[in-house]
């Protein structure tokens, strides 16, 4: 039976991501309930509304930390995937911005940018399998 080394960088990375994403879901639920019950804009609502973005920031920090801890080959692959996904996200968001500006296309919620980034990251994983 394969033993899982919970002290390995990849295990720590996976557990950290799971932890922060769990907190993200919990915060989303709490803020959602609160915002529906108290829709009037107050400093508390502004504060709570920002809270779910903090775990998102922490997941990015987890990725960057994992990159710094892993070996040079894995770091090169992860960096290329990360940069590719970032570039594609920036490109699509810019294109959508022009569509909104010039063609009156509907604006998607900005919080969708983060999942969009991970979709592009997943796609880049399929194509970026090695780096010189």
């Amino acid at each position: 039976m394969t033993q899982i080394n919970f002290k390995s960088h990849s295990a720590r990375y996976t557990l950290s991501i799971l932890g922060w994403m769990t907190l993200y879901v919990i915060l989303l639920l709490i803020v959602g309930f609160y915002a529906r019950a108290h829709p009037e804009p107050t400093p508390l609502l502004y504060t709570l509304a920002v809270l779910p973005s903090l775990p998102v920031g922490m997941t990015i920090w987890c990725v960057l930390r994992f990159m710094s801890k892993t070996d040079e080959y894995m770091r090169a692959i992860l960096t290329e995937r990360f940069v590719t996904a970032t570039g594609l996200t920036l490109f699509l968001c810019t294109a959508w911005g022009f569509l909104i500006n010039y063609a009156q296309v509907q604006s998607p919620p900005l919080y969708m940018v983060y999942p969009m980034f991970w979709i592009f990251y997943g796609i880049s994983c399929a194509f970026i399998r090695s780096v010189k």
């Binding site: 070996d71 040079e72 080959y73």
Partner: peptide, 22 residues
């Protein structure tokens, strides 16, 4: 070497040019 097995595979198969340190 203190690297992943993927790194060894990549160096052996000429898919990765190792750093001077490696």
């Amino acid at each position: 070497l203190g690297v992943s097995r993927q790194a060894v595979i990549a160096v052996e198969s000429d898919k990765h040019d190792p750093s001077l340190d490696l």
